[in-house]
Design a protein around this nucleic acid. Sequence first.
DNA 1: CGTAGATTTTGAAACGATTCACAGCAGCAC
DNA 2: GTGCTGCTGTGAATCGTTTCAAAATCTACG
Lengths: 333, 333
Amino acid sequence: MAVSVKEVAARAGVSVGTVSNVLNRPEHVKPDTIRRVQDAIAELGYVPNSAARQLREGRSRSLALVVLDVGNPFFTDVARGAEARAAEDGLTLFLANSDDSTDREALHLDVFAQQRVGGVLVSPVGEDLSRLETMRGHGIPVVLVDREAGESAFSSVSVDDKAGGALAARHLLDTGRRHLAFVGGPLRIRQVADRFEGASSVVATVPEASLRLFGTDEMTLDEGRRVGEALVPLITDGRVDGIVAANDLLAIGIQRALLFADQPVRMPEDVGLVGYDDIAFAASAVVPISSVRQPSALIGSTAVELILEAADGAAPRQVVFEPDLVVRASTVG
Amino acid sequence: MAVSVKEVAARAGVSVGTVSNVLNRPEHVKPDTIRRVQDAIAELGYVPNSAARQLREGRSRSLALVVLDVGNPFFTDVARGAEARAAEDGLTLFLANSDDSTDREALHLDVFAQQRVGGVLVSPVGEDLSRLETMRGHGIPVVLVDREAGESAFSSVSVDDKAGGALAARHLLDTGRRHLAFVGGPLRIRQVADRFEGASSVVATVPEASLRLFGTDEMTLDEGRRVGEALVPLITDGRVDGIVAANDLLAIGIQRALLFADQPVRMPEDVGLVGYDDIAFAASAVVPISSVRQPSALIGSTAVELILEAADGAAPRQVVFEPDLVVRASTVG
DNA sequence: CGTAGATTTTGAAACGATTCACAGCAGCAC
DNA sequence: GTGCTGCTGTGAATCGTTTCAAAATCTACG
């Protein structure tokens, strides 16, 4: 059943060492021999066993990416960028989904540690990075994605979320709004907390402006709708005239609730709405949504770059991208 | 650097066999010994090497899923269902993206064959299943996802796409439309061809009804918008009054183009729109979109079920789910 | 106290690929 | 003919785990 180098060697009338040489350094093998071995491989349908190879080499030619939510287009874009960059170096990228759960995250990290992957890219769920420390201690390079490493000795690639939050809030203030709402949560997610903080700090600079927080349990379309419905009366009253959503899924849900309320809200006249991530659906929304853009594919490819550096023993490095604002009809007429 | 069973054994003062027993069949080991070994494991930070385990066992405790497009929420939902079911049996699921390319599909399948994964779930890009045949020949169970296996000896789990296409078309006819447009492509994608065929066959039963095909290169928001713009004048003329989109991404793009045209089209008054897949965004669209629902998570979990059966040597089996129609405001007032 | 039987523990073999020191050999110069 | 060099090819050792027959130890009971 199992075809191994041994069978191939027997069939081709050479030793196992020679078969391995044909596979890994054909320049040391006579052309005629190469052909004989390749014929044998084809005839027997030999497929190398990567477990054996890996065991011998001590490390696998693969990387892992653990994201917070595969359902969020932002992360699939990051994954695309990472995979493309990894492929350039002949590396395979495993994609795993932690779904905002520390348990699932831990589970995946364990599996990857056991696989001895060449490196782990992770957008960590919580603040506790000790498990990642141990991974690095075991010689597995770790890069934080979409989260700044701060004083810790990890490499990281992130986007300045405070700046992003500020960008969104400032845009609303610049276009005349004064009573802002920030929708997102839970605040234990660092990205959310930072975006809120950025927005807050900008609002604080304008005396008559206010910012009110509307917390959510998750950042989904449904939660957005729920909050959107609650916002309608406030907007009608004039108590809210600008909304910053912590991501585009929320923003889309909010928009839907506002436009389809019994007493519909006009956008951008009655209220301005800014999302975050600039996923494709944001541009295709009913009223296209202004959004804070993050260079998602670039984040992915840069993360792989940093892993490769780390694997070469380079010192950890923090890359922080600046977000920019894509202005659409949800904020300006 | 590398901590192996050997070091653990030495530290705990037992043999390597005992360490392995603690890990795999603790019921045969004295409680006191278990504790001593576990302490040693903790102190040394031992992490099992799954390459070695796999080499010994000949097969890895993991499955692979290769999807056509990770960017499509339908497939991430399938992946979720599959992963959950796999986790029940302690199996890891690797997710890979073929992006509609046979090359990328082949690449991923090669890697998985070398990994000796316990099974492969794949929604194949083309019609040529020979590579999958060889995988099965090598003893790796294969299950086709979202594609019926037909006469071939694979297991498969699919949804009746002809019935789905028919469902969509019949609904439009039932609500009084007669001039239908089918948007989707390329037709080499089996699912698209089947949905079109289903719609055609229903339309053919109504004398005065017609169905026109609008081909696309890919099934994305942008392509939907492009076709939507082309449809506007036809709808205004009354030459088209119902649209079947081959998936929801297209439908959302189409809707946006129609609603935001210079001379906007009313929905459902001027035209009815039916999508396919029932992704979350369809329900949250401006005008919520009627859509042919596929039980995505169930498809994923069933596929894993079939893999497990096949691994136990059971005969291949074809599971075909019936789609159903979720009616929303895009087709009825 | 001896022993059958059960419970624990042992340690060498095996999984499949890579590596590397070394062997075989042809060609060549002296 | 001898010794070198360069090119090919060899095969035993190795990676870390599991397995399993056999050994060691314990338990209960006459």
